[in-house]
Design a protein around this nucleic acid. Structure first.
Lengths: 113, 113
DNA sequence: GATTAATATGAGCATACACGCATATGCTTG
DNA sequence: CAAGCATATGCGTGTATGCTCATATTAATC
């Protein structure tokens, strides 16, 4: 297959929305906390150190983006990573960032922050 | 396989920023236009249909995020994809979105392909 | 049915940012 | 050095969204 055909405006919008869902540190923290399996809202609140209201909102955002799944059990609601590609995405970005940072450190000739 | 250690707040911020750089349709369009090699600003303006000012701003954003590289030649400035992982990122997201969409179509009773 | 626990949501505020318009900067040529 | 082209940037505006506080909803228990 040669050239890839350009995505439609709607497709671009969808891709952008997906990236936007991952563009918040708190949401990344939630995803990270779920790497080892599903957790309840309260567990996520504890794990991330956020407020209950805020965490709930972010969970809604991630669920609507089909990144997380929602399972209700009694009083609790458990969230889990629904889209495994998310893990790959984060790993890709992390790897790329590490390269960039190490390059910067090298070019700066020392340690700094 | 062991547990992954959680990223620091700063690292999460960096990852979030990177995703944010990709969270705009116009910027995705620019990246897409650059898939086949470097282009000048004016060529990108034509390719994307945006205004010159807006394109220039987005190019600055992407360059500062180390996603694009900048090469000046006479009056023109050429931009190119500096981080190849970006291509993988976009492909991953596109693939994941296609799955989701086809699943939605299926659940809506349409005939799958 | 009232109370309590777990989660979700409405309202308000502050900030971030995309966009358009106008103009500045930088490079080339006469 | 004046003029013209390609690109960048200052400014104002509208919109989106993250956060907090308070309250609503839902489900289990007494």
């Amino acid at each position: 297959m040669a050239k890839k055909k350009p995505l439609s405006d709607e497709a671009l919008e969808l891709v952008a929305r997906r990236f936007a869902a991952l563009a918040e540190p708190m949401r990344l923290r939630l995803i990270q906390a779920l790497f080892n399996g599903e957790l309840s809202v309260n567990e996520l609140v504890v794990a991330t150190g956020g407020t209950q209201a805020n965490i709930s909102r972010h969970l809604q955002t991630l669920t609507q983006a089909h990144i997380l799944s929602r399972r209700k059990e009694g009083l609790q609601v458990f969230y889990a990573i629904a889209d495994p590609s998310i893990v790959k995405l984060c790993e890709l970005v992390c790897g790329s960032l590490e390269k960039q940072l190490s390059r910067q450190v090298t070019s700066l000739g020392g340690s700094g922050r």
